[in-house]
Design a protein around this nucleic acid. Structure first.
Lengths: 144, 144
DNA sequence: ATAATTCATATAGAATTAATATGAAATAAA
DNA sequence: TTTATTTCATATTAATTCTATATGAATTAT
């Protein structure tokens, strides 16, 4: 029952970009240094993020990444789901809309309740909120 | 981000015992048949459950298992955690009590919020509640 | 040209998952 | 007392997933 490093690193990566959202392009190398995460691993991760259109990229010298939209536009859920898939404790083949509650098993309902609770958390925290909390703490430069 | 089959089967197993909580001892073979789960795999699982004292067992012919306490006494959380460990999306080394919120990273706080939301769900559903829901649905004999 | 950087894909070791297998110990019933 | 049934204990294994590392092509500013 764990979110893998990909999902967690993705959030730290996006938060790093949000905190340093100055309009400049930030190379992945810089983020890897700050976050102490393998550069090549981060490259894989941001590739997925980039393909989803969450960031803009510029190749070559002086290139890098920046957020495609303002931090208010990104929820934790959007980012983590991109790397992890649905944040469901089980594979729920029955989509909530397709079946009545009564047609599903009681254990399936439990997993659905857990999923809903998780979604409620991650869909209501934006990068902007995390940036705000980060500055509020103000205890350590890149302790994300 | 999944609960493994052990945790899920454990819940179905305990729910099966709760539904059939007549005072008789139920062999694991019976449960395996009803739930269509490998008998040997279920044995491994109930061994852990038994060691935790959640069930009483009797060996030999006519033996089997039964709940050690009434279904009201078991929450989904107790059962699933037994097999899965903490239902936390990451390993949270900092126990909530040991550190001030401000001393932890903003991402750690997110994972903590997710954990709290999950705990809130699983700690407030008992086996008795699931038995009630099961009878309420009443659509299929062992569709757990 | 050169250095820096994204982009694309392949490879690999470690860990975890999900079982299956083997057999000993205990108990009721024949 | 034998037999069938059942829990209890532990070992093994195949498949999958995780967590990277590696190689190198394409692009761009200097």
């Amino acid at each position: 029952m764990k979110i893998s490093t990909k999902g967690r690193y993705a959030l730290r990566l996006m938060l790093d970009l949000a905190i340093n959202n100055t309009g400049e392009y930030i190379p992945i190398k810089r983020i890897a240094e700050r976050q102490e995460i393998s550069e090549k691993y981060l490259e894989q991760i941001i590739t997925q993020i980039s393909r989803a259109g969450f960031v803009r990229s510029v190749r070559g010298s002086q290139g890098g990444y920046q957020l495609a939209s303002p931090p208010e536009e990104y929820t934790v859920g959007m980012i983590v789901r991109l790397l992890e898939g649905e944040l469901s404790p089980v594979v729920l083949t029955d989509e909530p809309g397709n079946y009545e509650q009564a047609d599903r098993s009681v254990t399936a309902d439990v997993w659905q309740e857990i999923k809903d609770a998780i979604d409620d958390v991650v869909d209501n925290i934006t990068l902007a909120e995390l940036v705000r909390r980060y500055h509020e703490k103000g205890n350590c430069e890149y302790y994300i």
